[in-house]
Computed example of a mutant assay.
Amino acid sequence: MSPLDLTHPLATGMPVYPGTEPVRVEPDATRDADGYRTTRLDLDSHAGTHVDAPAHLTDGSSLDEFPVERFRFDAAAADLRPLEPRERIGRDALRDALTADPDGVDLVAVVTGWDRHWGDDRYFDHPYLSAEAAAWLAAHGCDLGVDTVNPDPTPTERADEGEPDGFPVHERLFDADRLIVENLRGLGRVSGGFELRAYPLRFDGADASPVRAVAYPGDAGRD
């Protein structure tokens, strides 16, 4: 496997979590007017492909408190496809889909295929993990990567009555000082073990940051 870019490009009007300010990527200076070119980026720390830190929801660590090597993950894919809109992914289904020993990897990349809906309303009616699945990941010391906007249910008018409120997956992972990489794309192109590099911007107290997420071939979690 050649290196694979798993990042959604930053662009004006790109999908963001409901209620978040829209992203704007606009020319600032131009060569014709100023003799040089610059671009103004106006975006939330959780825009696009990004990594969440425990400080997002808890009193836990911010991204700048983690060593830089923490963002280079031995990863393994758990391909759950096909999935229905707003389908719940339980612990057993996640465990059975994982291609490696969870004790031998840093991050589990959950493949739902929902990145194919990027840019339309269906993107927000994605499958989601159960709290038990998140607790299982935390117990094995695993971070989480998803090809959705959220590993928890995202509220929309099509939400089911039985769906959990709030962010139970985030909370269980953050309580264990784990990281969550969201809005990945193209996870269906990876298989087995691989290395994921997802380095955040460096700023004080970072609750989250956009990343350039790149997968490299490897055999994470295998003997």
Rank of each mutant, 00 (worst) to 15 (best):
2 S>R: 15
3 P>F: 05
3 P>G: 05
4 L>I: 15
4 L>E: 12
7 T>G: 14
9 P>I: 07
10 L>C: 09
12 T>N: 05
14 M>S: 05
21 E>Q: 07
21 E>W: 03
25 V>M: 07
26 E>I: 08
27 P>Y: 06
28 D>N: 12
28 D>H: 14
36 Y>Q: 11
47 A>F: 09
48 G>A: 11
48 G>T: 02
49 T>C: 09
49 T>S: 14
53 A>G: 10
60 G>L: 11
60 G>F: 07
62 S>M: 03
63 L>Y: 08
63 L>S: 11
64 D>V: 05
65 E>C: 05
65 E>T: 12
66 F>K: 14
69 E>M: 08
72 R>A: 15
73 F>L: 01
74 D>Y: 04
74 D>C: 15
74 D>V: 02
75 A>Y: 09
76 A>K: 00
79 D>W: 07
81 R>D: 04
86 R>P: 09
87 E>P: 04
89 I>Q: 10
90 G>N: 09
93 A>L: 10
93 A>S: 14
93 A>M: 04
94 L>F: 06
95 R>K: 10
97 A>P: 02
105 V>P: 02
106 D>R: 06
107 L>H: 00
109 A>Q: 03
112 T>S: 15
112 T>G: 02
115 D>T: 07
118 W>M: 06
118 W>I: 09
119 G>K: 13
121 D>T: 09
121 D>P: 01
123 Y>I: 03
125 D>F: 03
126 H>Y: 02
127 P>S: 03
130 S>Q: 03
130 S>D: 11
133 A>D: 03
133 A>V: 07
134 A>C: 10
136 W>C: 00
137 L>M: 07
137 L>N: 11
137 L>R: 11
137 L>G: 09
140 H>D: 02
143 D>W: 04
148 T>E: 00
151 P>F: 04
156 T>F: 06
157 E>T: 13
158 R>A: 15
159 A>L: 11
161 E>R: 14
164 P>A: 08
167 F>G: 02
170 H>F: 15
171 E>M: 13
173 L>F: 09
173 L>K: 12
176 A>D: 12
178 R>G: 13
182 E>L: 14
185 R>C: 13
187 L>H: 05
188 G>C: 10
188 G>S: 12
191 S>F: 02
192 G>A: 06
192 G>M: 02
193 G>V: 00
196 L>R: 03
196 L>P: 00
196 L>Q: 10
197 R>K: 06
199 Y>N: 08
205 G>R: 13
207 D>I: 12
212 R>N: 08
212 R>D: 13
213 A>Q: 08
217 P>K: 10
220 A>L: 01
221 G>Y: 02
221 G>T: 08
223 D>F: 04
223 D>N: 08
